[in-house]
Amino acid sequence: MTHHAQFATAKVQGAAEAAVVPVPPTTKGATPMATGAHVQIDGLSHRYRGMAANCLDDISITVPAGQVLALVGRSGCGKSTLLHLISGLMQPAEGGVFIDGNRVQGASPRWVVMFQAPSLFPWMTVAQNAALGLRFARRTAEIPERVPALLEMVGLSAYADRNVQDLSGGQQQRVALARSLATQPDLLLLDEPFSALDAFTRRALQQDVRRIAKELGLTVVLVTHDITEAAIMADRALIMAPDPGRIVTDTMLDPGPERHRDSPAFEAERARLAHLFETTA
């Protein structure tokens, strides 16, 4: 079908005025079906202390509620930094991130990051790990009901009382997913969460995470250097280039209804994304 490829035209020109953008209006409610967050990134620039150049330069993105967005780029292009800025774990030097119209000023159980390492607490069981977010949010009353449902969703019901050290890497990452979803966030931020897993496990998780996100109507921002992963999981891909980190390509993805690896539609879409990546990144 038709390409949705278009080079990111927004904010490529003129960095000075881009930094001062009014707070965008919230679009929540415009799409009643979705419960996901609307994410607006305005004129975002960032520089690490002691570095001469910006690692991110004048990034502006809008992610509608319920969209799965992939940030694709080689290592060092600032995609992980961008994710940390969206999550509020880091604060940008310039510009801002707005989730449902509110400026992000810190971490919140409403937007949760899944990192490359699951970093589960080895002194706790699977169920206790999954319940952490609810505990921190003083919603312990919900634990008896929510946690079994979450473990069911990620396929680990049988492991609820096991120590997390008994689990495989893929299972641990599933616990991390359950933990991330416990507080019912509107936005899931994925920082290459499958890159340490074997190919078989990775594939299963890629499909499951997309399915779960779609079932819950979550907005997802996925950071990856893997073109195939982006094609499997995302509705839209942004390709980033380094020095300074910036967005060079913004394209919608249409890998066919099944998103099946072996289907011609998927392969064509993957090849198109790979070509875009080679030519722009």
């Binding site: 774990l89 971490a107 990192f115 390492a117 952490l132 949010a137 507080t183």
Partner: peptide, 14 residues
């Protein structure tokens, strides 16, 4: 492990 603290802050830990 600093990742434990990062994950916890991310989940809203005080």
């Amino acid at each position: 492990d600093p990742a434990w603290l990062k994950v916890s802050r991310n989940l809203g830990a005080k």
